[in-house]
Each structure stands twice: as C-alpha cells, then as structure tokens.
Amino acid sequence: MPYPGHVPSAYPGALPPPVNYPPPPRRRRLLVGGLGALVVVLAIALVVSIVMATKRGDAGPPALSNASATTAIQGYLDALTKGDDETVARNNSCGFYDVVTDRETDMTLAKLGSDAFRRQYEKATVATIDKIVTWSQYQYQVLFTMRATPAGRSQGSVQRQGIAQLLVQDGTILVCSYLPRNTGQF
C-alpha cells in the first residue's frame, strides 16, 4: 500500500481523457427558440386585446353626477314626506322589490320610516351634494345637505346633513338607505 488509508482503485493507472460529446441537434435549438418567440407573441396579443377591450367602451355605466344624485335623493325625500310607502319600500329593498313575494315587512318598515320623517319635517329639499364616495361602478355613498321645514314649528327652515347609499340598476338610481346626520348637543 503506497498511501495509508488509500483504497485501491479497480482501474489500474491514470484515467483516460474526457470524451467530447456531440452538440445537440440544430433542430432542438430551433424548436426551443421558436416556442419562446411564440410565447412572447401570444403575451403581446393578450395585452393588446385587453387594452382594446377597455378602450372600446366596456367601462359600464357613467359615474354618478351631482344632478342625478340630487334627483334620486329628492324623489326619496318627497316619498317620505308624502307617505308614499311603496316608493320608499321600492328604494329600501335595493333592487329586490319586484321579485319579493311577501312585501308586508317592506311596507311596514317603509311606513315606519316615512311616519318618523313626517313627524320630524313637513318638507325637505336637497340643497347641496357635499361628497360622493364611489364604492363600485354601481354603488355610491352620498353626503348631502337638505333644507327642511320642521314639523309643527314656525321657526323657518333648518339645514341638516344626511347620508344616502345609492345603487344604479337598469338605468334607475335607488336610495337603498338614508341616515340623518345628528346635529344635537351631547
């Protein structure tokens, strides 16, 4: 044993030089390059089609304007003031009114809401739209100021803020909920 701890090799002497392997066939390189180019072309086509689809006018309904929000909220306030419970219930059901089979609960809640509003105000008019917060292309939350005549008092009109949640559906703007902003002292 020439070296201590050395294990003898099964091959006597030095190893032969490494063998040069032939290069991969040219067809395989062309196939890989062609597939890479195809993937790039498909990615570009996908991006272009997405950009063209968004520019084509598929953006959905137009954004809610101050004028359309004022009209919708004023219609709802008028329904509350006149005791038009069906209009109040149609708005409050937020698009489900025509497909609900039992409307008794909806009508009861509408009556309670309009009765409470009439006990508070004789008349209410939307004065300004203070802010519109967009939740989606169909849903909005609107802070508005209304000029209202208190019920049973001759002190003139007061200004109160309210928040309305609006839904745009089938070209109609529904007031799904209305909450008065509290102006009382705490």
Score class of each variant (00 low, 15 high):
Val39Ile: 15
Val40Lys: 03
Val41Ala: 15
Val41Lys: 06
Leu42Gln: 14
Ile44Gln: 04
Ile44Met: 12
Leu46Gly: 15
Val47Glu: 07
Ser49Gly: 05
Met52His: 08
Met52Asp: 11
Arg56Thr: 13
Ala59Ser: 12
Ala59Tyr: 13
Gly60Leu: 12
Pro61Phe: 04
Thr71Gln: 13
Asp78Lys: 13
Asp78Leu: 13
Ala79Tyr: 07
Gly83Trp: 00
Asp84Met: 08
Val88Ala: 05
Ala89Phe: 02
Arg90Pro: 01
Arg90Leu: 07
Asn91Val: 04
Phe96Ser: 10
Tyr97Lys: 03
Tyr97Phe: 11
Asp98Ile: 01
Glu104Ala: 15
Thr105Cys: 01
Asp106Ala: 12
Met107Trp: 02
Leu109Glu: 11
Ala110Pro: 04
Lys111Phe: 11
Leu112Trp: 09
Leu112Lys: 13
Ser114Pro: 05
Ala116Phe: 08
Phe117Ile: 03
Gln120Leu: 12
Tyr121Ala: 02
Glu122Leu: 11
Glu122Asp: 14
Ala124Ser: 15
Ala124Arg: 06
Ala127Thr: 09
Thr128Pro: 01
Thr128Met: 05
Ile129His: 02
Ile129Phe: 03
Asp130Ser: 06
Lys131Glu: 11
Ile132Met: 01
Val133Tyr: 08
Ser136Met: 09
Tyr138Asp: 08
Gln139Val: 08
Gln139Leu: 13
Gln139Arg: 15
Val142Phe: 05
Val142Leu: 10
Phe144Pro: 02
Phe144Ile: 05
Met146Asp: 06
Arg147Leu: 11
Ala148Glu: 06
Pro150Tyr: 03
Ala151Lys: 13
Arg153Lys: 13
Ser154Tyr: 05
Gln161Met: 08
